[in-house]
């Protein structure tokens, strides 16, 4: 790692801290400034009718009766130690509740990302820059795939492959249980990445350096794989960090469709019961994952694009 890469890593980390602080602060103040009483949420939500004494006791226990700024101070201090407090509904530390579910969601999203990349690269290499029906069908399929919402695709995959064909379990654990949810997330992302990669591939095929390579006797397949694909992969790599974010959004849906454990399920439960410490905790962890993903994306980009590596001998001749 040289200077410029280190700088990028540092910038990403700074962005991460900023992201966490901004999100945390917004959520904190929203929670305390909008009408509604967290104590009620703790005591069973809107439908429950706790006594004033019980409410007061809970307020005192959770420190809601302290001045707002003091609460904000201890909230921030907690964040720095990854201490999000105790869940209102689970009566368990937020961190441990998340810790039990994170692995399952990560496995799902990373598998989906892999599927998306494989599908989009295959589709691009096969169809981009070619004329005729094959390329047009490929492009059409990508547009449709990108427009498929996970809640529908998941249900369709479930109905076809689990309910009708019995190829895969409806609700499963382990590798077989991962297949359908991962494709549910991977196919729309593949459509999206495929469109971006294909556009870039088409644009780069028209570049003079491709003509240069052909003039040296390179075959069509060689030009595609050795020169153009590398260029075409760059925007896709950049978008993969963002894509992981989209996958986490999608994981919320997929976990509900396939009744799968994970922080998505946990989040939906937390949102339904207005369990804000849990919501904030999950948000934080997702943001952290996201930051790490973007760091890895940056490193992958540098690996593919040597222009970012060269600080030595950069002086022009």
């Amino acid at each position: 790692m040289n200077g410029s890469v280190r700088l990028r890593v540092l910038r990403r980390l700074a962005e991460a801290v900023l992201l966490l602080l901004v999100v945390g602060t917004i959520v904190f103040f929203l929670e305390h400034l909008v009408p509604g009483d967290p104590a009620r949420a703790i005591l069973g939500g809107a439908s429950a009718h706790p006594s004033p004494q019980a409410l007061a006791a809970v307020r005192h226990e959770y420190g809601f009766d302290r001045p707002l700024l003091a609460q904000y101070g201890s909230f921030l201090a907690g964040l720095l130690r990854l201490d999000f407090g105790e869940s209102y509904t689970l009566k368990q530390s937020v961190l441990s509740a998340i810790g039990g579910q994170l692995g399952s969601t990560l496995a799902l999203t990373l598998t989906a990302l892999g599927i998306a990349w494989v599908l989009s690269v295959v589709s691009t290499l096969a169809g981009a820059g070619r004329n005729g029906w094959w390329a047009r069908i490929g492009a059409g399929v990508e547009v449709i795939a990108a427009a498929l919402p996970q809640f529908w695709l998941g249900v369709v995959l479930l109905l076809v492959f689990a309910v009708r064909l019995h190829w895969l379990p409806v609700i499963g654990t382990g590798a077989t249980g991962l297949v359908l949810p991962a494709f549910t997330l991977g196919i729309p992302l593949a459509g999206f990445l495929g469109q971006v990669t294909r556009d870039e591939f088409d644009a780069k095929l028209k570049q003079p350096f491709v003509l240069s390579a052909r003039a040296r006797g390179m075959s069509e397949a060689g030009v595609r794989a050795r020169h153009v694909l590398r260029h075409a992969a760059l925007p896709g790599i950049t978008l993969s960090g963002w894509g992981l974010g989209a996958l986490i959004s999608g994981a919320v849906i997929a976990e509900v469709v396939f009744a799968r454990q994970g922080i998505g399920q946990l989040l939906v439960t937390a949102v339904n019961s207005q369990d804000l410490p849990l919501v904030i905790g999950i948000t934080f962890v997702v943001a952290l994952v996201y930051v790490v993903a973007n760091l890895l994306t940056d490193l992958a980009y540098v690996a593919v694009d040597p222009r970012l590596r060269t600080t030595i001998g950069a002086s022009k001749a």
Partner: peptide, 8 residues
Amino acid sequence: VSLDPLRR
């Protein structure tokens, strides 16, 4: 643009 910008 006639030399591949990503290759040495």
